[in-house]
Design a protein around this nucleic acid. Sequence first.
DNA 1: TTTTACTTGACAGAATTTGTCAAATGTAAA
DNA 2: TTTACATTTGACAAATTCTGTCAAGTAAAA
Lengths: 102, 102
Amino acid sequence: METVGQTIRAKRESLGLLLRQVASYLDIDQAILSKIERNERKPSRDNIIKLAEILQMDGEDLLIQFMSEKIALEIANEHCASKVLKAAEQKVKYLKSNLEKN
Amino acid sequence: METVGQTIRAKRESLGLLLRQVASYLDIDQAILSKIERNERKPSRDNIIKLAEILQMDGEDLLIQFMSEKIALEIANEHCASKVLKAAEQKVKYLKSNLEKN
DNA sequence: TTTTACTTGACAGAATTTGTCAAATGTAAA
DNA sequence: TTTACATTTGACAAATTCTGTCAAGTAAAA
């Protein structure tokens, strides 16, 4: 299973773009992008959106990959991880139904 | 749907315990516990475990409630929240299957 | 009015995040 | 082997977030 970093690097290389080109588009130092691609740093939400743009990817897909990876790493070492996710699903539903009302 | 803070407060009051008593058991200032109960501060993992002990609750249940609440609040404002959770579930499975091997 | 429980906000120190920079490393062509 | 270029690495600083302390404030009961 591919990490966000791996996905980004693969796409960047397939487009023949350099770290410095993509980093400048994101308005960050190329050192940071290098670390993002190797999962040493986490991209910001804005980074993800800009990355999807320049790498011609679906922004929502990349965001989903990014957020789900974050959550998975947070709880993967819990033996009750899947219970946590199921409970989270219920809470999200509840929260959303309340947002509608206000 | 009850927040962790509400659950804790309800249980503490039903046992007739004072903030200061529970806080001292957790080894934190009662101001912090007050804020935890009103969702102004987040409890640490250790706080949750100790709370379950002194409030005679199941520690795992409380942890699940705590972690799922954290995740739900993180993503509830995303319209793709449920896709994120489904993707997270897959990733957790993948990560767990790899942990076994090492 | 006094006591008791809880709340609030200012504050400080610790820890984490976020970014900059330049030197080091790797790589491939000249 | 040099040279040029892409990437990686780690030291560093600034900014932000986290954690807890403390004392003054509110509210309600005795």
